[in-house]
Structure formats: structure tokens, C-alpha cells
Design a protein around this nucleic acid. Sequence first.
DNA 1: TCACGCCTTTACGTTAGCGTCAAACAACTG
DNA 2: CAGTTGTTTGACGCTAACGTAAAGGCGTGA
Lengths: 129, 129
Amino acid sequence: MSPVDPENAELYSIADLAKEFGISTRAIRFYESKGLISPERLGATRVFRRRDRARLILILRGKRLGFSLRDISDYLALYDADRGQQVSLLAEKVEERLELLEQQLTDLQTTIAELHEIRKLARDRVVSS
Amino acid sequence: MSPVDPENAELYSIADLAKEFGISTRAIRFYESKGLISPERLGATRVFRRRDRARLILILRGKRLGFSLRDISDYLALYDADRGQQVSLLAEKVEERLELLEQQLTDLQTTIAELHEIRKLARDRVVSS
DNA sequence: TCACGCCTTTACGTTAGCGTCAAACAACTG
DNA sequence: CAGTTGTTTGACGCTAACGTAAAGGCGTGA
């Protein structure tokens, strides 16, 4: 049995999350060492709540987008800056990031269009052969 | 003077391209060592043509999208597979890559939407304060 | 001729993001 | 009580993608 009480659906062990997201426990500990998540402790054992799980989802999405953990950390900071930060600074950071993402969106759409074109060419070749 | 004759606008030195794209000559040599580009030689000196320059643009776009050089290499292979490859294999690879890119597109749109939301929240806070 | 600027190759250094033991502890199970 | 399973903290290893000298060749201009 998991060291975390399964009667409480809000709690996850490190192995639970690793399995759910198809990553290693080592990776999760590494993210914690970098300050991306900070699960509670039950003695020495990590205990993850919904918040940690949600952050993990954001982390993995960031990775799919090719961001470094450093970038993801910055993004998470924006994300949970509901209160506690200088709003002006926050807005600035958000704007910066949005510009990068929109550049990336353009790149992505161009690339997808090109692949569609390549696919089309390939099909034409099949037909005419 | 550049070792490449400037009268011929089709030719670029390694420094020309490095400067134009804001990368190091080391990076360009590294890409060649990985087979992503293969400029001609004039003696020992690299001579880049339009094709090499075009490839470099694709490489840099791939990097902005967070792809590894290995991935970019695969992508380039699709790109110049106008002829010379098994069409069926080509189509398969294209399809694979398109799926990844469309996942990435979804991630990206979600992230952008979230940042817009955060920006909105921040603005509301300013107004109500 | 000699310094300069740009080119080359070789090679070691560096950072990120984990993988992979190792050693030790805690709880359950037969 | 021994064994299995899951946890912890080190600590060393590894690949990618270059950075950074070091040492030398080639052509030009004073």
C-alpha cells in the first residue's frame, strides 16, 4: 500500500504522480530541488496535494513547449501571483512571455503548414506514378 | 574583405551568416558537424549558398520551437525529400511530426489563453484598488 | 616584413536535466 | 523475524549544445 492514506483522495505519493504522468520519481525530486514544487512532508516522506499536482501538469506542458525549467519556474511565478507581487512588474513579465509565445505560435503554424504542403506533394507523387 | 567574393550575392562566409542570424560561428560549425548543413569548401574555407542559408533558417526556427538538433535533422530530411525517399515512409514521418506539432499547438494556445487571463486579473486588481 | 583579421581544426570546459546506483529507514506480510 | 516494497538523501555518470581557448594558415595593407 501507498504510504499515503488512500481514503483521502486529495493526497498523492511521489510514485502515484510519477506513474500518472509517466515520469520518474527522480524527475519529480529534481523539480522540487529547483523549487518548482514544494510538497509537504509526513516525517521525511513527501506528500503531494492537488496544488502540487496542478503545478506538475503545468511543468510538463512547459516541457512539451520546449521551455527550460528556469523558464517554467518564471511562468509558475506568474501563475500563482494572484496576490503578493507588484502588479506592474507582473504585467510586464506577462507581456514579455506573451510575445515569446506568439512568436512561437507563428513558427508553429508555419511549420505545420509546410508539413501539410510536403504531405500534399508526396500524395501527388503517388497518384501520378 | 570577406574570403568570399562579394560580387556574387549568392555566397556567404560563416561570419556573414553568424552575424545575420545572431549566432556564433561555433554554432554553425557544430550544426555542420551534426550533418544539418554541408557547405562547400574553397580550400579549407566554408562557402555557404542559398540552400545552406535556407536550412539555417529552418534550424533556428526549430530551435525556437524547442526541438533538439536530432529532431531538426529529421525534419530537414522530410523537407528536402522532394525525391529520393520511400514515399510511404516519408508520409509516415510527416504524419508523426504533425501530431506532435498539433499537440504543441494546443498546449501553446492554452498557455496563451491563461496568460491573457492572468493579465486581465492583474488589470482588474489595479482598477479596483 | 610584419601585424591584422578572418579562417581552420583540436580539444577541453560548462550547464541542464535528469539516470543510476548506494546505503539506510519505515511499514507491512507471511 | 526475515523479506518485500516504498521511501529518503547523497553522489557520481551521462548527453546535448555549444563556449572558450590554443595553435596555426592565408591574404592584405602600411
